[in-house]
Design a protein around this nucleic acid. Sequence first.
DNA 1: TAAACTCGTTACCTTAAGTTAAGAAACGAT
DNA 2: ATCGTTTCTTAACTTAAGGTAACGAGTTTA
Lengths: 199, 199
Amino acid sequence: MQLNNDKMDQILLNFLARYVILSEEEQNVILELAIFKSFRKGTILLKEGQLSKDAYFVLQGCIRCYYIVDTEEKTTAFYTESETFNPPGALNHTPSEYYVDCLEDSILIVASSETDEELFVKYPVLEKLCRLVSEDLHSKSQIAFDNFKISTPEQRYLNLLEIRPDLAQRIPQYHLASYLGITPQSLSRMRKRLVRKAS
Amino acid sequence: MQLNNDKMDQILLNFLARYVILSEEEQNVILELAIFKSFRKGTILLKEGQLSKDAYFVLQGCIRCYYIVDTEEKTTAFYTESETFNPPGALNHTPSEYYVDCLEDSILIVASSETDEELFVKYPVLEKLCRLVSEDLHSKSQIAFDNFKISTPEQRYLNLLEIRPDLAQRIPQYHLASYLGITPQSLSRMRKRLVRKAS
DNA sequence: TAAACTCGTTACCTTAAGTTAAGAAACGAT
DNA sequence: ATCGTTTCTTAACTTAAGGTAACGAGTTTA
């Protein structure tokens, strides 16, 4: 699918409209600030040790967050269309402990979190918008954490198939396995077990 | 330790001062709204199925968040002094899927999240405060999630001892085990293994 | 075309967690 | 002081995940 500029603007505004009603002027202010960038599959957006002050909104494609522990990648999150990724730790100006890369060719909105205080004063609704988005993301993230904790790897896999069936299609198994907290071999075995159970 | 009202006010203001500078008037507005409540150990603050619109700030004591899955309690979080708990899902007015109880006699500030829009208009700094707190909590929650995912139960336990040694002291082992994602028996075995390794 | 690489699967063995059951220790209430 | 509840530990057995290695299918590269 090809995205032209108008479509991309519209995707962003649709997302924001879930939270607040924006006047035309406010919409334009945001669109002025939004920087659209394209990245090739495999591009590394953030490395361990770097300071990240950018937040990402995915217009198209998929980005992944992962740690490297003893040479091994541990994937903790995927973000796809109309999802936002606000790198944790960015607020405190602490160096990143994780990596972010593009699993597919992606079009992202890169928002510098050098939030302009004046802008919030001039357009208080923007501060409200940020509050509401943050509260929503926090709430969702906590629920996801809870579900992860109270589930076995098998339940997590079945849950993933149910909640985000697209991921199971577009993401390599070994990344999924890592995301589920197991090895690719274990995932492979698990899938065999599940087929056996089902029949 | 006994807490009088002035001390309690001060604890809350100290917490808020981490995020914004408040004028005396703004401080008083917040203290007016803050409702201090005492609860006996064992009190259930929220049950599955209930609508929760209250957020909690712990002045003294400890509260716990848990799910009940097949008659079994699965603990997902503890909150102690100067920590806030904003029940996820409250925003969407969806019934709670989890329980919250007091593990100790506790003094909490109960904040109704029926946030007064007028108040934010009159005191924009309060909206900023909420945004900053929410962003901070989200960031911390994501980092905690990441750490949980990339760790084994043993690493989680060792990490807990390092980061929150107080919890290991004041919380029963079987709750800790549940929090770590294992059974009390496994935690008991693990502790024995660790002692053996250490020597 | 051949070699290299990526990705998924299978197998064998080891390690640790779950399950069930039982008993010991600590704590509270009468 | 005693009874009962709560909490922690231990043990024997079962289940599933980790580590290592090898194989094969599909792609990319030379």
